[in-house]
């Protein structure tokens, strides 16, 4: 247990706690909740050689949220899938150069940061609401929830990143 994995675990627990006690209760306009626990995926350092621990902790994170919100395995599946496709998203958002340097999200331009966050959040929310609703009869609700929740989560994540990035880098 070195310093970085300790702070990682602390970040994990803090995010789960904030999500279930605060952000799951917002219910803006009656149905919108931001899923800020995805910040774990945003901040996690990229390790090209050994991705399995990251994928596994992402699964665990989703499962924790699921247990708290009685939703079966939808958060686990969504977080897991997002974690698996994160390298692709990183490449789209930051170009090929990201392989050679460790990305510090606080030091990127706003455009790159925006792209990175929106792709991550959109992937996550699409999988999440598809599995949660699980019916083509409710396609309109699905799209409505996905789009508005994405906007909500994105706004909060952008605020969070610009507030705390200096401390974390």
């Amino acid at each position: 247990m070195n310093n970085s994995s300790l702070s990682n675990a602390l970040f994990f627990i803090t995010l789960v706690f904030l999500q279930v006690t605060l952000f799951n209760r917002i219910d803006f306009l009656g149905y919108l909740n931001p899923f800020i626990y995805i910040l774990y995926l945003v901040y996690h350092p990229y390790d090209k050689e050994n991705r399995i621990p990251f994928i596994f902790t992402a699964f665990l994170l989703g499962l924790c949220i699921d247990i708290f919100s009685d939703s079966g395995g939808v958060h686990a599946a969504a977080t897991l899938t997002t974690a698996f496709f994160r390298p692709v998203i990183l490449r789209w958002a930051f170009g090929l150069s990201f392989d050679h340097q460790t990305i510090k999200i606080g030091k990127t331009t706003f455009g790159q940061r925006f792209n990175y966050l929106i792709l991550l959040i959109l992937t996550h929310h699409l999988v999440l609401f598809t599995l949660e609703i699980f019916s083509f009869a409710h396609l309109v609700i699905l799209l409505k929830k996905t789009i508005f929740s994405t906007i909500f989560t994105l706004l909060l994540c952008l605020i969070f990143v610009s507030l705390f990035s200096k401390k974390r880098t």
Partner: peptide, 10 residues
Amino acid sequence: LLFIALGLTF
């Protein structure tokens, strides 16, 4: 892991 998650979901 996806299989487990989907199993729990269904």
